[in-house]
Amino acid sequence: MDRKNTSRPSTTLKAAVLAAALYVALAWSAGFIFGVVRELALKPLIGPVWAQLAEAPVMAIVTWLAAGYVLRKLSPAPLATGLLAAAVLIVIETVFALGIRGQSVSDYLAAFDMARGTVFPLLIIWFAIAPWVRAQYGSRRA
C-alpha cells in the first residue's frame, strides 16, 4: 500500500498549538516587561494614552520578531498559529487584568475602546495576523 506524504490534520493542529504556545510565551513575556516600564516610568510622565502609544511600536516589532522565530523553528501553519495564539493571549490578558490586577470589567473593557486612544485592539489584530504576514513576506524573499 503506497501512502502519500501528506500532513494529517492532527499533526498540523498539534504543530499550530505548540507554535501558538511559544508565540504567546515570547510576546507576552516581552509585553509584561514593557508593560511594567510603561506603567511605572512612562505613564506618570506622559499619561496613559501617550504611554500606550509609545509602547505600541515596540510591541509591534517584538510581535514581528517572535512570529519569525516561531516560523523558523517550528514551521507551523501561520494563520492557524496566529489566530490560536491571539485567542490564548486574550484569555491570558483577561485573567491577568481581572484576577491578578483586580481591574473591574468596565476598566478592562475600556482597554479595547479605541475612541479613548487605546491601540490594544490593533495590536491584538496584528498579533493574530503577523505569522501569516511574515510567512508571505518570507516566501517572496526567496
Rank of each mutant, 00 (worst) to 15 (best):
G35M: 06
K14N: 11
A27M: 03
A115M: 04
S106V: 09
W64V: 07
F34G: 02
A16V: 13
M1D: 07
L65Y: 10
K73T: 03
P131K: 07
A51W: 08
G47I: 11
A97C: 05
I129H: 04
G35D: 12
A54Y: 03
T63G: 09
E39T: 12
L79Y: 06
L83M: 13
A66G: 08
A20R: 06
L79K: 04
I100G: 08
A128Q: 07
A21W: 00
V70Q: 08
A110R: 09
R141K: 13
Q136R: 15
E55P: 01
A60G: 09
A56D: 01
A67Y: 03
L71P: 06
S104R: 11
L71G: 04
L89E: 03
G31S: 12
R141T: 07
A142F: 02
A77V: 08
L42D: 03
A66C: 08
L71Y: 07
T11A: 15
I129F: 13
R38M: 11
A41V: 13
T81Y: 10
I124R: 00
L42Q: 01
L83R: 04
A135N: 06
A111P: 00
A80K: 10
A77N: 15
V133N: 00
L84V: 07
A80L: 14
A41L: 15
A128L: 07
V119Q: 01
A20N: 11
R8G: 01
G47W: 01
G47E: 07
R72K: 15
P44S: 10
V91G: 03
G99M: 08
L65M: 11
G102H: 03
L74F: 14
A21V: 12
L26P: 00
S75Q: 14
A115N: 10
I33Q: 01
V36P: 04
L71N: 05
S29H: 00
A19T: 06
T11W: 05
W132L: 13
L42W: 14
A54I: 08
E93Q: 09
D107T: 11
R101W: 07
T12N: 08
L122N: 04
A41R: 10
L65R: 12
V17L: 15
A111Q: 08
P131G: 14
D113T: 01
P78V: 06
L89Y: 02
F96S: 09
A130L: 04
A97K: 03
L71M: 13
V70D: 07
I100Y: 11
V88I: 15
A130W: 02
Q52D: 15
A51Q: 01
V49C: 02
S29V: 05
A128T: 00
S7D: 15
T94V: 03
M59N: 08
A115Y: 01
L84Q: 05
Q103N: 14
L109M: 13
D113L: 02
L83H: 04
A86E: 04
F96P: 00
K4I: 06
M114T: 15
D113E: 12
G102S: 13
D113R: 05
A87E: 02
Y69W: 12
V95Y: 08
